[in-house]
Design a protein around this nucleic acid. Structure first.
Length: 645
RNA sequence: GCGCCCGUAGCUCAGUUGGAUAGAGCGUCUGACUACGAAUCAGCAGGUCGGGUGUUCGAGUCACCCCGGGCGCGCCA
């Protein structure tokens, strides 16, 4: 419908411009509050009132005759204090909706877009906070690809960070395990490390003198000395595989895994450092509290400065991030080497390596970059962008988007369900932050397992005769759909206070509600084939000149049909709106509303049982359009539509 | 102290870059299945949109000030 609307806007503009001082972009067309008042409302009379020194209502009155014969408009009228309401040609809109259903006419704006998301430290299992990140990032990727953009998804692996060092320390010092022992460790490795990491954190707090040993381990890893280096590498790689397996359960995949170790080996930082010095984006601090450091002055606060290179010559996290961001835009003049890491449904996932490997693919070189990182890192992301700007890469700075979102926290109820013994101070609070250090959080796989168990029980109630394998597959799809919708339904700026009961719900505004709706739609077409031998693809608009809307259709049904089709036809606009605002709760809400409208419609209007042939054909055409748009929306959210459930 | 975010129905949250009469879900209550799938649908009840002052034809939405809560502000990542 986006194409229909833009054509409409242009022809309205053509009619108005001779008489009124309007610009094309002033012609906003908002839906009316009530379909009885028309379909779209123009508000330009309000805007013109002052300059024309006329009442908005009078302006609207004057404009009405100009719009009466615009193509696609069947009626125009004045309403309220000066709204100009339009009634659209239902058949024309419906025809376009049928034509475009399940597809899009949108086109890309960028040469190439890089999205960085997930980025879990490879030292422990993924938890619900990580899931929010991955679901948002993956949905963004899907929407941009739908739009036609060339998208590359990167999952940055901090394989040399202190968090991995902590776990190496734990294996060596607390558990006295060798690499050989690790290879034989039974059970879920990421779960083992989850507990170990919490144990190490507690141990280091109680035994500050152990920091010396930890520092020694870190140095060994940096210099590639075994057994520390071999352990760190083994741990990080095995955990990354665990994370990938978790994300695969949600249909989330990546193109490339850039590793921090490679950034260090290939001297990305040295190159970036030289650039920063050369263009004076950073300066050497000769005195004061940051004496001996290379620092960047902050634009919004001249008093403050951020240390980029420490006095001991090592680079900070932000410094490395600036180098990485430069590489994403192809501004570093360096590239990684790559080797295959995994095969995901026939698609190769590549990992960076310092070892030259001829014939490998190339990554990076984007014209726009989205970094999906929670809002607590907003300050650091600002510094990164300022880094680009200071290097005179203002175009790239403007296209460095921090896709920020609030954290996932735990409700007091979920804390007690996890068996967490909260301190008195913690009991006062309305929620607690997830903390890997404390081992406090809901592990992604645990939550998915619980969702699957519950889904399987529900399937058993309804479809116990299905083959076991199919029941398992459906349970997986429902678990995935429930979780993905849950992660998208909240606005990104609001803290999700996680509650098991809410997250495990399959009723109301949930993923399974949407899936159930899709299943009902499937069933109609399955039965159409079984009972009447008509395939879904045979449902097409009448070709013999008969009207798209059957004559004599009741006023009530026309209104219900129209409400449904208008909703379905706004998918593309909703996608654009969601991407522009980075607010995928819009898309989620859109899909939910569409399902609600369909379920209400279907309740009132029988389809297969309808005796009047032309009415039945019309309803089939209507719901087929709905089905395709719904499947499309589900696909954008990564919610799998089961055949049955 | 400075910066960012949040405050809407009993609970959890939407609210289309300012539009007409503020909406969902859950929960409560009342109804609808020998099924085109009840993971559904129909209905009842529930609101000084934290408070105030402005801007505007129009404010839940924008500005400023308060109140309450969260998160940042490391030579950690």
């Amino acid at each position: 419908m986006i194409a229909f609307k833009s054509r409409l806007r242009e022809s309205i503009y053509e009619r108005l411009k001779a008489v009124f001082p309007v610009a094309l972009e002033d012609l906003d067309m908002a839906p009316t509050p009530d379909p009885k008042m028309g379909d779209l409302a123009l508000t330009f009379p309000f805007q013109l009132a002052k300059t024309l020194k006329k009442a908005p209502r009078a302006i609207a009155q004057e404009a009405v005759p100009l719009l009466a014969s615009v193509e696609g408009v069947v009626k125009a009228d004045v309403a309220g204090g000066g709204f100009l309401n339009l009634w659209l040609d239902k058949a024309a809109v419906f025809a376009e909706a049928i034509h475009i259903a399940g597809r899009t006419a949108l086109s890309p704006d960028e040469e190439k877009i890089v999205i960085e998301h997930t980025n879990i430290n490879p030292n422990k299992a993924a938890h619900i906070g990580h899931l929010r990140n991955a679901c948002l990032g993956d949905t963004l990727a899907r929407c941009l690809r739908f739009k036609g953009e060339k998208v590359e998804v990167q999952n940055y692996i901090d394989d040399t960070g202190v968090q991995v060092v902590d776990v190496v320390f734990g294996f060596m010092e607390l558990d006295k395990k060798t690499l050989d022992d690790l290879e034989k460790l039974p059970g879920k490795f990421d779960y083992y490390c989850w507990d170990l990491y919490a144990r190490v954190s507690a141990y280091l707090t109680e035994h500050p003198q152990a920091q010396v040993r930890k520092t020694a381990i870190m140095k060994s890893i940096e210099h590639g000395r075994d057994p520390e280096y071999a352990l760190s590498r083994y741990i990080s790689r095995r955990i990354v595989r665990a994370h990938l397996a978790t994300m695969k359960r949600l249909g989330i995949a990546y193109d490339v895994l850039p590793c921090e170790s490679t950034i260090l080996h290939l001297k990305f930082w040295d190159k970036a450092f030289a650039l920063l010095k050369e263009r004076q984006a950073i300066s050497f601090s000769a005195e004061g509290e940051n004496k001996g450091c290379w620092v960047m002055r902050l634009e919004e606060d001249e008093e403050r400065e951020k240390v980029i290179v420490r006095s001991d010559g090592t680079v900070t996290y932000v410094g490395k991030d600036i180098a990485y961001q430069l590489w994403k835009f192809g501004l570093l003049g360096l590239d990684f080497y790559y080797e295959p890491f995994a095969d995901e449904n026939g698609r190769t996932l590549w990992i960076s390596t310092p070892v030259p490997s001829p014939g490998g693919p190339g990554f990076g070189g984007a014209s726009k970059v989205y970094n999906v990182i929670d809002t607590r890192q907003a300050y650091l992301q600002k510094v990164v962008v300022q880094g680009l700007r200071s290097l005179n890469y203002s175009a790239q700075a403007a296209k460095s988007i921090h896709f920020s979102y609030e954290m996932v926290a735990l409700s007091p109820k979920s804390l007690s369900e996890l068996g967490y013994a909260a301190s008195d101070e913690e009991k006062e609070r309305s929620f607690l932050e997830v903390s890997g250090r404390k081992g406090l959080g809901v592990k992604a796989d645990d939550l998915l397992d619980r969702l699957e168990d519950k889904a399987r029980a529900e399937i058993e109630k309804r479809n116990s005769a299905l083959p076991a394998e199919e029941k398992r597959r459906i349970a997986r799809d429902i678990a995935s759909g429930a979780l993905r919708y849950f992660m998208l339904k909240f606005a990104r700026n609001s803290v999700i206070v996680f509650d098991f009961e809410e997250a495990l719900s399959f009723e109301g505004e949930t993923g399974p509600y949407l899936q159930y709706t899709a299943v009902r739609l499937n069933s109609i077409f399955r039965k159409l084939k079984e009972r009447h031998g008509v395939a879904e693809s045979d449902i097409v608009p009448p070709s013999d000149g008969r009207a798209l809307l059957p004559p004599g259709l009741s006023e009530k049904e026309t209104a219900d049909f129209w409400d449904l089709v208008l909703a379905a036809a706004s998918l593309e606009e909703e996608v654009l709106r969601s991407v522009a605002a980075l607010e995928f709760s819009h898309l989620a809400k859109f899909a939910f509303l569409l399902c609600q409208k369909f379920n209400g419609y279907y309740h009132k209007y029988p389809v297969l049982a309808e005796e009047n042939k032309s009415v039945r054909a019309f309803r089939l055409l209507t719901i087929r359009t709905i089905k395709e748009q719904l499947h499309c929306a589900l696909g954008l959210m990564g919610i799998p539509p089961p055949e049955r459930m």
